[in-house]
Design a protein around this nucleic acid. Structure first.
Length: 395
RNA sequence: GCCGGGAUACCCAAGCGGCCAAAGGGAGCAGACUGUAAAUCUGCCGGCGAAGCCUUCGGAGGUUCAAAUCCUUCUCCCGGCACCA
């Protein structure tokens, strides 16, 4: 194993425990089994999830086996990590609805091989009470309560269910089931990953290395990226969306995003940041580069170029977008615009449409519309936009 | 189990018989300025082919010309006490 292999494996990592062990494993020349468990709690892979997925991919690139565990069973238990209250438990149906689309997206980030995809219901569903009791002997209540999330909740008198105590045990058992050498996770997963080590030891296995990645901050620049907060970019989003959303992130996220979202090596990131700091590189230019890198990763360079051109047309030169999806202009003349905007799904309600028309935000081929009634002539084969981001081509 | 406090729009939070589609803040959307950054400023922020009407203030029922506001009841949350240990 050469130096650069270790660099790739550890690039961007937050914590790697125990110290030195990962290097040993990498140098051993053995093909490692690298585990990443993701609970299908939401239907989309965001750039946040992609951070750990890309880390897994790094190991694939080094020839190691990616063992991706779909936590279909654990999603029904509810991970307490980082939570100030009990996490919602998903039903088997919800899990199933999420899992299929997720698999496809996982494959989009990872290499086709070496890849092993496992569902943890495979071994967790059939655990009997004897084995569960066995599992529970590996931790004490005091150890559980050391975790900051539990500690806070306990001291504030908030409820902690026994189910939540079980979660890290089950996740640890996953490591036993797949014989993991390394387990990856977000930095909020460190405790769970360390529990995996305890449990592996209990089952006579060599304990895994725990490698955590920082949690990616969302497009709002404040909270970690999550689907429930709406501050995310999905890996399946169209190139122009990805590009535009990236351009809208606050400047202070540049370094973090270059490193984690665009997956660039530290040296390159430092050079760019230095350029921005010394004024030799404009922040907006750096962000363009970032956006192009991210889009290239998931859509390819061709689409990245096209997305940038589209971005310029739309926002820099304020021209009408070329990729506006078509929408069939309904019969009738004149056209009742609020109704049209609603049925074209550019707005949620006709009331909202009226307000936006009043505010001058609704345009036909770039020209503001004054009233609610518009002649058919004026709309046919034109691009209708609401603000800068929403548009349709009427035909 | 008992006593007390509470539940208001996406979130926080005022209102406590008519002037309430409901103050204020945050988030969000649109506009100005920019670099779709930050900061700042302006407007909007339940629905409806809309001077009017309809639906909303935890659920159900009631009082009243009139209820987010008063009464009854139910559900859930918070504090204290008791029970248990």
């Amino acid at each position: 194993m050469n130096e650069s292999g270790i660099n790739l494996a550890t690039r961007g990592a937050d914590t790697i425990l125990p110290p030195g062990r990962l290097e040993e494993l990498l140098e051993s020349g053995r093909r490692l089994r690298v585990k990443l468990g993701l609970d299908p709690t939401a239907p989309m892979v965001t750039l946040g999830w992609a951070v750990v997925l890309r880390k897994l991919r790094h190991f694939q690139e080094l020839g190691h086996t990616a063992v991706l565990i779909v936590g279909d069973f654990t999603a029904r238990v509810g991970d307490p990590s980082g939570k100030s209250e009990t996490r919602k438990r998903l039903t088997a149906e919800e899990v199933k609805a999420h899992a299929e689309p997720l698999l496809e997206q996982f494959r989009q980030v990872l290499l086709p091989e070496p890849l092993e995809i496992r569902w943890n219901s495979e071994w967790l569903e059939s655990l009997d009470m004897t084995e569960i009791l066995e599992l529970t002997t590996t931790v004490t209540v005091a150890q559980m309560l050391e975790r900051s999330d539990f500690a806070n909740r306990y001291s504030e008198g908030n409820p902690i269910s026994i189910t939540e105590f079980l979660y890290p045990l089950l996740q640890g058992y996953d490591s036993v089931a797949v014989r993991a050498d390394v387990e990856l996770g977000g930095s909020d997963q460190l405790w769970n990953l360390m529990m995996g080590r305890n449990i592996q030891t209990r089952y006579g296995q060599e304990p895994q290395v725990a490698l955590t990645m920082p949690l990616l901050t969302g497009t709002d620049g404040r909270n970690k990226m999550s689907q429930s907060l709406g501050n995310y970019i999905g890996v399946t989003e169209p190139a122009s969306e990805m590009f535009g959303k990236t351009m809208s992130i606050p400047d202070h996220l540049l370094g973090e995003w270059f490193r984690l979202a665009a997956d660039r090596p530290a040296g390159e990131v430092d050079a760019i940041l230095e350029g921005v700091e010394t004024g030799s590189r404009h922040p907006a230019q750096a962000k363009r580069l970032l956006a192009r890198r991210i889009v290239s990763l998931y859509r390819g360079e061709g689409e990245a170029d096209a997305a940038e051109e589209d971005f310029d047309r739309r926002f820099k030169y304020r021209r009408v977008p070329e990729d506006a999806p078509p929408f069939a202009l309904p019969a009738g003349d004149p056209v009742y615009l609020p109704g049209l905007l609603r049925s074209a799904k550019l707005v949620a309600s006709a009331s909202e449409a009226r307000r936006l028309i009043d505010a001058g935000a609704v345009r036909v081929d770039g020209a503001s519309v004054g009233g609610y009634e518009v002649e058919r002539q004026v709309l046919l084969d034109r691009v209708l936009t609401v603000g800068k981001r929403r548009s349709v081509f009427l035909n």
